Computed example of a mutant assay.
Amino acid sequence: MKLQNDPILIAKKVLQQEADAIQGIADAIALTPDFAQCVEAILSLRGRVVVTGIGKSAHIAGKMVATLNSTGTPALFMHAADAIHGDLGMIQPEDFVIAISKSGDTPEIKVLVPLLKRKAVPLAALVSNADSYLAVQADYVLHAPVEREACPHNLAPTTSTTAALALADALAVCLLESREFTRQDFAHLHPGGTLGKQLYLKVGDLSRQNQQPQVHESAPLKDIILEISGKRLGATAVLNEAGELVGIITDGDLRRMLATFEGRLERVRARDILTPSPVSIEVEDFAVEALRRMQERNITQLIVTEAGQFSGFIHLHDLLREGLV
């Protein structure tokens, strides 16, 4: 099928229109104290934030709930249509309700608002129309003004949903920063998946599962080869009499040595071919930092130390297995 219009021009027009709408929100929230007061009210909340909406606004509400929960603000989703069929019971006296609606005048919202008022819980309206029924009835108005949708017929929710989502994100981040929510807090709430592993997985969690190839600095070539091949990590640490780390020998070091060596191989000792001051990492460092060091130096393993002493190895395959690469 031949395109009648240039898709690049259409896409750029849509993105610019939605970007302009978001800039309009940034200007709008500075005109009233409602946004800042809403943040303060939620921070002092003893209950949960219940977010509701219908249609496309319900999808934005669901995403808002997910963002709030993951950043330290307990939240629940309540579909506006289901609220009058029993779900209203999820709202407790100490909760706070945010209702999302572009027009603020949908039939479902008009039925729901009086029921929320009977609950005597604070109500915030995230709306495009600040003069709507919902906005007038709400305690706080989170204004997301939108002149028209990106849809050429001004029908499909596009710019309005983007604007609502952006304002919801702004609220969540304000709450996050006000609570001084840290990376460690985030990690506690995201223990699964790659994101969680980046935030909590330590080098020692992986290195302790590996063998610990090591040879004395006086070890002969045969012992070095057997240690590297037997422990299957592509390298061995080299230690001195005091058990201190003095270097590393990789299988690459062996190949390069054999390609150029002209003497008697039985005389070769570990001290003759080791690489001194090898790149290392502590057991308590994050695994993602091990990946960064490997990528930075184009290597596939790191020596792991604990309080400065040799503890083992972490290999690129360990990080691949955990999905960090």
Rank of each mutant, 00 (worst) to 15 (best):
D82P: 01
H143R: 11
T106P: 08
E149S: 15
S103I: 00
D95K: 09
L68Q: 11
T158E: 05
K110Y: 00
R46I: 04
T67H: 07
I84F: 09
L112P: 03
D131W: 06
V113K: 02
P122K: 11
R148T: 15
E94Y: 06
D139E: 11
H79V: 02
V113M: 13
P114K: 01
F96A: 04
G104I: 04
A125D: 09
V121F: 12
L155I: 15
A41N: 11
T106I: 07
G89D: 05
L116Y: 08
G55S: 07
G86W: 03
P74T: 04
A61N: 13
A58C: 06
L165K: 05
G47K: 06
L155N: 03
I91R: 05
S132F: 11
G55Q: 07
A125Q: 04
Q92E: 12
T158D: 02
C38G: 03
S132L: 12
R118G: 04
A61L: 08
G89P: 05
I84G: 08
A150P: 07
P145K: 09
K110V: 02
A81Y: 02
A163K: 07
I98E: 11
H85R: 03
M90W: 01
P157D: 12
I109L: 10
T106N: 03
L123E: 08
S57L: 07
L76I: 14
K63G: 12
T52Q: 10
D82W: 02
S132H: 05
V136P: 00
S70K: 07
D105R: 01
A130L: 08
G89L: 01
T73S: 13
H79F: 08
K56R: 11
A168G: 15
D87N: 14
I60S: 08
D139T: 13
V51M: 14
K119P: 02
L45C: 14
A99V: 15
P114G: 08
T71W: 06
D105F: 00
M64Y: 10
L142I: 10
V111H: 00
T162C: 12
S132D: 13
A61H: 02
K102S: 09
F77D: 09
T106H: 05
L43A: 09
P74L: 01
P157N: 04
V127W: 01
R46W: 04
G86Q: 05
A66R: 01
E149C: 13
A166D: 03
L112N: 07
A99P: 00
A163Y: 05
S103G: 04
K63D: 06
L68M: 14
V127G: 04
A156D: 13
K63T: 07
A120H: 13
V113W: 00
A138I: 06
Q137F: 03
D139H: 15
D82K: 08
T71P: 00
N69I: 10
H153R: 13
L115P: 00
R48N: 15
M90V: 12
T161P: 05
S101Y: 04
L43M: 14
D82G: 07
A166W: 08
V127M: 03
A120W: 03
L165Y: 11
L126S: 05
V51L: 12
L134A: 06
V39A: 14
S128I: 02
F96D: 04
T161E: 04
D82Y: 00
C38E: 02
L43T: 14
P107C: 06
M78I: 15
Q37G: 07
M90N: 00
T52W: 00
G47W: 08
A130G: 01
A124W: 03
T158M: 06
A75D: 09
Q92W: 00
S132R: 11
G55P: 13
K102R: 15
